[in-house]
Write a protein that binds this DNA or RNA. Structure first.
Lengths: 246, 246
DNA sequence: TTAGTTAGTGTAGTTTTTACAATAAGCAAA
DNA sequence: TTTGCTTATTGTAAAAACTACACTAACTAA
């Protein structure tokens, strides 16, 4: 066992997206600063889930560790999308106060590596390092701490880009899902509406999507066929097309 | 004027691609270690163009600075694609020797942010920080120093990905270019061949490509029409399609 | 003048995309 | 049991895009 020495200049921030019946959410962590004298709240706001890396860790491992601490899950869809190191990224007054209160040097230049990950919105602990954790609809995300708004916006951009070109919508749904749910994921994230019949024609061409011997249960209408996604078959059959979208 | 204090844990590496009549090249910098005792060469190999950032700089600025030092050009196509921070990325014997010879602590964990950029293969200085610089065809790139092979491979992957989905082929050509040249850029980078007539039909739909009142000169055959790319029009007219390639 | 080289163009068959609406299957309430 | 409510599922015709394929045009050099 190696001691987990912390590297104090490199951190990882995870933009954890969760989807729940028509809304795309992000997991946010509460940051509350209390005056050590009188235990009064100085301020309280929200951050992404992030942490410094350990000296023996790779970046991917650090991101996976954060994800695991929050969800207890090991193999979560995770993608590095961009790094952030603006000299002033931690220089707002609240951020400086916070860093000092944590025993960190507020002048230290810190680079953070952004990851985004995809979950169905459940299976998260509601506490992380003694701090409250909650899902927030992406439309309601404002005023995050540090430069986390920028990181969040870039993550969303990267997610949309990826969703257009690769089939990752599945990652936001349970293992078994209906085509209507899948369509809603696309509509929600891309902010469009899609024609149901045409969407299904497109899906019919995906050889890595399999109908199960199982139908939706407990709904007050015609139950939908359940499907599942096979990543192996996808990896085998995918091809890159010469495309350049107008 | 601020002093250019160097940050010793964050660096930027640039994978500079250049295209020249049918070959895609990368710009590499020679690294030669001499024994200070007798001035004998200990080893010599190649690296990407990289540098530590200055404390007052953003990552983009550092990458632009490196590009400017090499080319004298200011507005070059530049894209951050991935960061690298494996704990062992600088641990090979030659790398350790080199770092020590440069007065650096060989145990220091350094994160490097990868950028790739696109040029027509000309307008580079052949020296950079007193070191030789040269273009090398991508097929001949082997055994770079540090983890630069990995960075190079990831850059190439990112470039291909981007080329398929966005019109960046132009960035590798002079301002005025022929459609045959453009087609060759695609064929070279994607490693395919394309039908000339079909390629031109596709190009004809790009509203941001303009034929000039000018033809190719000094060629021993029918001179080709010259075209130019208008980035503003592209930005205005581009749309993201719902695509996910099979 | 001729030979050599690359530029430039059209068409028919096939596939993909688009727009659009009626029936089927389950549950709940009467 | 019947009726109503809700969502699932499916096809078609017209337009657009893609594919495969070969000849003529324009220039230079010999």
């Amino acid at each position: 066992m190696t001691a987990n020495t912390t590297n104090n200049t490199i951190s990882v921030d995870c933009v954890i997206f969760g989807y729940d019946s028509g809304t795309l959410n992000v997991l946010l962590v509460e940051r509350m600063l209390k005056d050590p004298q009188n235990d009064q709240e100085v301020f309280s706001d929200l951050t992404l889930a992030g942490n410094h890396i350990y000296e023996h860790e790779t970046l991917d491992e650090a991101a996976q560790r954060i994800l695991f601490d929050l969800t207890g899950l090991k193999s979560i869809y995770l993608e590095q999308f961009k790094s952030f190191a603006h000299p002033d990224r931690l220089k707002r007054p609240n951020d400086q106060l916070w860093l000092s209160s944590q025993g960190r040097n507020p002048d230290q230049r810190i680079i953070t590596v952004g990851y985004y990950s995809l979950l169905a919105s459940h299976d998260i602990t509601l506490e992380w390092k003694g701090r409250n954790v909650k899902w927030q609809a992406i439309a309601d995300v404002t005023d995050l701490a540090f430069d986390h708004m920028e990181i969040f916006h870039e993550a969303l951009k990267a997610l949309r880009q990826k969703l257009i070109h690769e089939p990752i919508g599945f990652e936001l749904l349970p293992t078994k899902f209906t085509l209507t749910q899948l369509q809603q994921v696309y509509e929600t994230i891309l902010g469009t509406t899609l024609d149901k019949r045409n969407f299904r024609k497109k899906v019919a061409k995906m050889k890595y999507l399999f109908p199960l011997d199982e139908k939706q249960k407990g709904v007050a209408h015609k139950p939908a066929q359940l499907y599942t996604f096979n990543r192996d078959i996808y990896e085998q059959t995918k091809k890159e097309l010469f495309d350049f979208n107008i």
